[in-house]
Amino acid sequence: MIDRIPIDAVGVQERVARLCTRSIKKESKLQALDLALRMMDLTTLEGSDSEGKVRQLCNKALHPYTELPNIPSVAAVCVYPNRVALAKSILKDSSISIASVATAFPSGMSSLQIKLDDVNYAVSEGADEIDMVISRGAFLSGEYARVYDEIAQIKEACGTAHLKVILETGELGSLENVRMASDLAMKAGADFIKTSTGKITPAATMPVVLVMLQAIRDFHVATGKKIGMKPAGGIRSSKQAIQYLVMVKETLGNDWLDPSLFRFGASSLANDVLMQWVKEKTGRYQSLNYFSND
């Protein structure tokens, strides 16, 4: 049902290393920082997420840095289903979307019915985007059809909400599996494919993201459909974010340099991007003391 495509990990690593030699300076750096901020899914996914914490996160999403009024806001906030309504109430007049993880996040170890209920609940609370997890256990034991069917049914349950499919690449064991899972998810109806839950190490890595971007490129060639990409977890510095943007540009082209097709799932990245932004504008290296820690 899905072809296994050979991938040489050393070759992937070499391509990544070469992409990382791109030197992004001056106006192209500012452009990239602006883009990175607009592509951000500001995320909190802790068992300890209280109303207060979510409120704080939403405020940060609306006003990343009050010193600079024209700074763009992030693309979305990403929360658990039971915090969707709260986020919605704060962000309803903004351009910021509400994303919610669902489907027995992060392990996905439950029945399909419970996963569907999870999705229905998040959508009914007002989620614009659903970040689901695939059943890695089923995938690794070769039950590709089961994984496919789950995605397809969840896609249906999403209705107008958009579906991001988390592959949890840190558990897939090889780049070839990453590629296969990407192809499978896109074929089953994913609007986005996403690397990780953030609960497993390694989360997003550059080789994994490159392989997923190549899958998106080939899917586009084959079907004409543009699928989005979201690396999540482990991306903390602006430098890393810019390297990902270079990778997107040189793999998929400028079309994908848009929040509608590329997102960063991150929490601490926002402040680093802001600090770099201010540094570019002022010439001074910045301190975290001057950026709200939400």
Binding site: I24, K25, I96, D128, S260
Partner: peptide
């Protein structure tokens, strides 16, 4: 063709970006 893109497209005005690398 772009029917799958996320709602941000409509909520947030995005300018198509032609990102190129400055001299380094």
């Amino acid at each position: 063709k772009n029917s799958s893109v996320l709602p941000t497209q409509s909520k947030q005005t995005t300018v198509p970006i032609d990102w190129s690398y400055a001299e380094a």
